[in-house]
Amino acid sequence: MTALGLDVARIRAITLDLDDTLWPIWPTLQRAEDALGAWLTTHAPRAAGLARNPEARHRARQQALTDHAAHAHDLATIRREAIRQLLAWAGDDPALAEPAFEVFFDERQRVTLFGDALPALAALSARYPLVALSNGNADVHRVGIGRYFHAAVSATQIGVGKPERRIFAAAAQAAGVPEHAVLHVGDDALLDGAGALAAGMQLAWVNRASAHWPPAIAGRPHAVVPDMRALCGLLGVAVS
């Protein structure tokens, strides 16, 4: 846990990344992929066979990104269209992409929070307005943590994702404060770190893996913490 020039008095709101900051994303996505595969096996078995092939899944995603380049920031749209592509290649009904995606999306909301996440959210939200800021498609209300958030801002809503400044500006506006009064908290040095620093926010880097800060990124985090409980300690926020 390191404070590298963090000015706590300047903080009037906190924007908070979700995936890999509050819960590990890969187990969540694997469960969602498994649920999707099971559904396809029943309703579109030929597409299910294709979906079991990593190369076919990759090609379907790349095709979706090519066909829907204007929506590259919208992970839900790209996922849905990749499923549609697999269905079409397999000779199954492409209209099944809609219910298939809903199966995936529903399971994607069943996250397993890091043990430090809920106590920290409760403590931080009692002192600061919290705004979820994510490139992903998790819904804080469906996940079950919506009560801690003043607002939620996503790449799908804004039309661009982190590290673009516009999404950070939108999050600050949702919090009702200027960007320089925001502490952004996230795990990704590029998406969270470079984006927040370029927007003039303070940055707390949640570095659960004890990684090194990439030297290519201009600027450095104002704080480095191993988890959310440590962040509360740096901010002087008591955690129950």
Rank of each mutant, 00 (worst) to 15 (best):
F105R: 04
I167C: 10
I83M: 02
P99W: 01
R59L: 11
A100W: 01
F168I: 09
A90K: 03
A64N: 02
H222S: 14
M228G: 07
A60Q: 02
A170Y: 00
D67A: 09
H73A: 11
G176P: 01
D67V: 00
H141L: 11
A97T: 03
L203S: 10
Q173D: 15
E102V: 02
A9L: 10
R61C: 02
P163E: 08
A117N: 04
P54F: 07
R46I: 06
P54R: 03
A230F: 05
R52P: 05
D106M: 02
A82N: 03
L22Y: 08
R208N: 06
H184S: 10
F105E: 09
G200Y: 14
V237E: 08
D92G: 04
A138T: 08
C232L: 04
G176F: 14
M228Q: 10
V8R: 13
R220C: 10
F149L: 09
E33P: 01
A238N: 07
E81S: 02
R80Q: 00
A174M: 09
A198P: 00
I158W: 05
E55K: 04
H43A: 06
V160E: 13
M228F: 07
V131H: 15
Q30F: 01
L118Q: 10
H58M: 03
L118Y: 00
V140F: 09
A100Y: 02
W39F: 10
A47C: 03
L133S: 13
A175L: 14
H180E: 14
A97L: 01
L50A: 05
P221D: 11
Q157V: 04
V111E: 06
A47G: 11
A189H: 08
R110Q: 15
R57E: 01
R52V: 00
A211E: 14
A97Y: 03
Q85A: 12
P27M: 06
A175F: 15
N137K: 08
A60V: 07
L87M: 04
H222T: 12
V153E: 15
R31A: 13
S154E: 11
L130T: 12
V111A: 05
R110D: 03
D93E: 12
G159P: 00
L65M: 09
R165H: 11
F104W: 10
P226V: 13
A88L: 09
A64P: 03
D17V: 12
F168Y: 15
L4G: 02
E102D: 08
H58Q: 04
E179C: 13
L36D: 04
R165T: 15
N207Y: 05
E179N: 12
H212A: 15
N53W: 07
A76K: 05
A120I: 12
A132W: 10
A223P: 14
R31W: 00
P226I: 12
L190N: 10
A76F: 01
S134N: 11
F101P: 01
R147E: 14
A44L: 06
G49H: 05
L16I: 13
R166S: 14
A122T: 15
